[in-house]
């Protein structure tokens, strides 16, 4: 894959480290989360067919994290954006 790092531009996928589903925020107050909710935060992630927002680390480059929206069937990458930014509407 050719992954568009928001800071470095398109780079070969071997420069990157995968970080799983994006927009799974650390809870503001974990003590207020019940056991089921905490287990969901720890262990449960989407495994969707289609557009998927996920985290990437440009490990062999700028060493910065970002999010990308990738299609899990075609591997097309429709957007890449810094952490904290809102997920763009795709598709």
């Amino acid at each position: 894959m050719l992954i568009p790092c928001p800071w470095c531009g398109e780079r070969e996928e071997t420069e990157f480290h995968y970080g799983g589903q994006a927009h799974v925020a650390y809870p503001d107050d974990p003590s207020a989360v019940d056991d089921a909710g905490w287990a969901a935060y720890l262990f449960v992630r989407d495994n969707s067919k289609g557009w998927f927002a996920e985290r990437w680390l440009h490990r062999a480059g700028c060493q910065r994290w970002f999010n990308a929206v990738r299609h899990t069937v075609t591997y097309e990458i429709a957007a890449a954006y810094p952490p904290g930014a809102t997920r763009p509407v795709i598709g």
Binding site: R55, L57, W65, P83, G84
Partner: peptide, 13 residues
Amino acid sequence: LEWLEEWLQTEWP
């Protein structure tokens, strides 16, 4: 080091 960076960049910028 990546662990520190990950939290700093993605949760506590």
